[in-house]
Amino acid sequence: MAKMPMGNPTYLRGQIRERKRIGSLYHRLRISLPQPIGPVLPGQFAMLKIEGGGSIILPRPFSIHNFEEGERVPWLDFLFKVVGKGTGLLAEISVGSPIMVLAPLGKGFPAPPRGYKPLFIAGGMGIAPLFPLIMRMKSSSSPLCLLYGAKSQGDLICLSELLDLKEITIKIATEDGTAGTKGMVTELLKGDDDDGGDQIVIYACGPEPMLRAVSKFAAEHKKPCWISLERRMACGVGACLGCVVETKRGYKRVCREGPIFEAREILW
C-alpha cells in the first residue's frame, strides 16, 4: 500500500465562529482554534465534543471539510447532517460556544500517481472529505471530474461552490431525478468508461452501498481507488480498537490505518 501521510493530533478548546444551515437537514460549522494546528491533509478527520451534552459522553468523528491551506491551520470547517442525538445537539450550538477539538486524525488521501487523472465520486454527505481534496488539486494541471450523487437536489450540498470552479467537470445523479440523471451516482461511471487510454485514480466517499459499487467498478476496470470510511469511534487515536473494519490483512482501525483505505483492501 502507498505510504500515506499523518501528523500528530492536538487537543484544543475551539470556538464556534459560524454555523450555517444548508437546506433542512445539513449544517456547516466553522470552528476557530486558540492556536493553529497542522498541517492538515484532505481526508483527515477530527473528534468533536460539545459541553453540556448530558447523556452524550463520547466525542464524535467528523471529516474535515475545509481549511486554509498552509503549515499552520487556524480554523476548520465541518459539514454534517442531523442523524441522531449528537448531531442534533451540534445543530443547535450557538456561535461563540466552546467545543473540544481533537485533530487532525487519521491518514489523508494520497496524491495521484504521476500521469493519473483524478476522478472524484461523492454520495450525499460524502462530499465532505472530498471537498478539500478538490480544492487542493484544482491548481494542478490535470482536468478534474466529479460524479456527485444524492437522494434529491436538496442533498447536493456545496454544489454551488463546486459549480463556481472552472477547473472541474461535474456530472450529477439524483435518485428522484430532481437534478442531473435519475438514478445512482455509480451509473454515471458507465458513461465514464470510454475515455480513451487515460489513466484515472478514483477518490470516493459516500454511503457504504455506493462505496461497494465503486470498489467493484475499480476492481473490474483495474483502476486505483481510494475510499474514505466512516465508523463509530470512541478514542479516535487508535487506542480502543472500537472502529475496526475487516480487510484482507485482518481488522484495521479506521481512525488510524484509515479513514482512507485502498478499496481493494476492504472485505465488503
Binding site: 463520547l58 480502543c240 480498537l241 475496526v244
Partner: peptide, 22 residues
C-alpha cells in the same frame, strides 16, 4: 483478532464495548 464489528455503542452516561481482547 477480537470480536466482529460493530464493537462500540454509546449508552446513557456510558458506553458498551465488544473489542474481544484484540
Amino acid at each position: 483478532e477480537g470480536n466482529p464489528p460493530p464493537r462500540i455503542w454509546e449508552t446513557w452516561g456510558g458506553m458498551l464495548n465488544s473489542i474481544g481482547l484484540h
